[in-house]
Design a protein around this nucleic acid. Structure first.
Lengths: 199, 199
DNA sequence: TAAACATTTTACCGAATAGTACAAACTAAC
DNA sequence: GTTAGTTTGTACTATTCGGTAAAATGTTTA
């Protein structure tokens, strides 16, 4: 094997950034080449299927990062509140308080959605499910945990949109603080049985 | 003038749809021509500055619709609760339960954001301010109303993203229902004990 | 060293891109 | 019916697009 100095994985961080900033169609091979420092030949050597394969690699990388840094703690950490706090902290850092776009979210509202539908769905299903698990571990009702976890994930996506639109990171921060309050277990969750039977 | 059948304004609905579906860069003149039924000659006759002017016209049209159908009632309707219910109803219809993307939101997370920054900002500022006014009219604290209205607007944007990602209109609907509960004035708002928890 | 393989450079392709120029066709007013 | 102005079709730029081909260079293994 030749020198492994320039591996496929080395390019992925740059690829992620250029797709985040310019979208799928907006990221031309010229831009990609400039961002990665690789010529077309190298790019097509590492990603024979072109831009589509590059995005898939980026999505896989992003998915792995979230799995390790967010989903896994939410699912497995004993202290559910701590796992949720970690999620909010890591998410804030990752999205740079709304200064950084969520590539998956951006792809979800683009016309290229169908091409990556499975990966996009997996990203969000993983997030919602993991958060739901943590909320249930808090002692919440399964249904309420479902609603609440969907609510939290969409709030983060919306916070990115709004804080970018208003060009104000404080909007993102306030949304995260709101979520902190809404997701923290305050004991009242146990009281509301509202006739739900378990099965 | 020649046949008045084809006026500038007649094309705007089609333009809005094609930009919604394909984004700014993705909407080629070929697609635009097909969607509007106009050739390049006509398009550049009505919009001498090309795609940029088309998007500006679409954004102005969207802004006017929201002003009339949503912001104005929120600001001026005596019954604040009714105005909020109208907002949620009209919004659900407009975005087709998440099946239709918000062009302004999509532009906000695209690289073309800077080009339309003012219009994007105006759209969201108008929304948040109008909703805040309605919430204050309910008797809420100004600060809390601000937080709550930001929270609602970003939730709608996030609901579009998530429901599209999961390809499930029910997600959007649940988010709207949640908002209905959160925005309805239930008297507890005066206690100021909800929301903010220390951590 | 030499063969085997990995990587990169360079030149190239056809198609599609946004935008321009302008003559033809149409419509309304007189 | 003529004229003046509006709208549209067509042909045309110049550039960029994603992608291909293959020779050339580099690296590792034997």
């Amino acid at each position: 094997m030749a020198r492994m100095v320039a591996e496929r994985s080395d390019a992925i961080a740059s690829l992620a950034e250029v797709f985040r900033e310019h979208g799928y169609e907006g990221a031309s091979l010229a831009l990609i080449g400039k961002a990665t420092g690789l010529g077309k030949g190298s790019l097509y050597h590492f990603f024979p299927n072109g831009k589509e394969e590059m995005v898939r690699a980026v999505l896989a990388d992003i998915g792995q990062w979230f799995e390790d840094s967010v989903y896994s703690p939410l699912r497995d950490e004993e202290d559910a509140d701590a796992a949720i706090a970690t999620m909010l902290k890591e998410t804030t850092k990752y999205f740079r308080s709304g200064g950084r776009v969520c590539l998956v979210g951006a792809l979800a509202v683009a016309n290229t959605r169908d091409l990556f539908a499975q990966a996009i769905r997996g990203y969000f299903v993983g997030w919602v499910d993991a958060l739901q698990a943590a909320l249930v571990r808090q002692g919440r009702d399964v249904e309420q945990a479902r609603i609440l976890s969907e609510d939290a994930v969409l709030a983060i996506q919306g916070a990115i949109v709004l804080s970018r639109a208003l060009d104000d990171p404080a909007v993102f921060q306030r949304a995260i603080d709101q979520l902190h309050g809404r997701l923290a277990f305050d004991g009242t969750a146990l009281d509301n049985s509202s006739g739900n039977r378990s099965f």
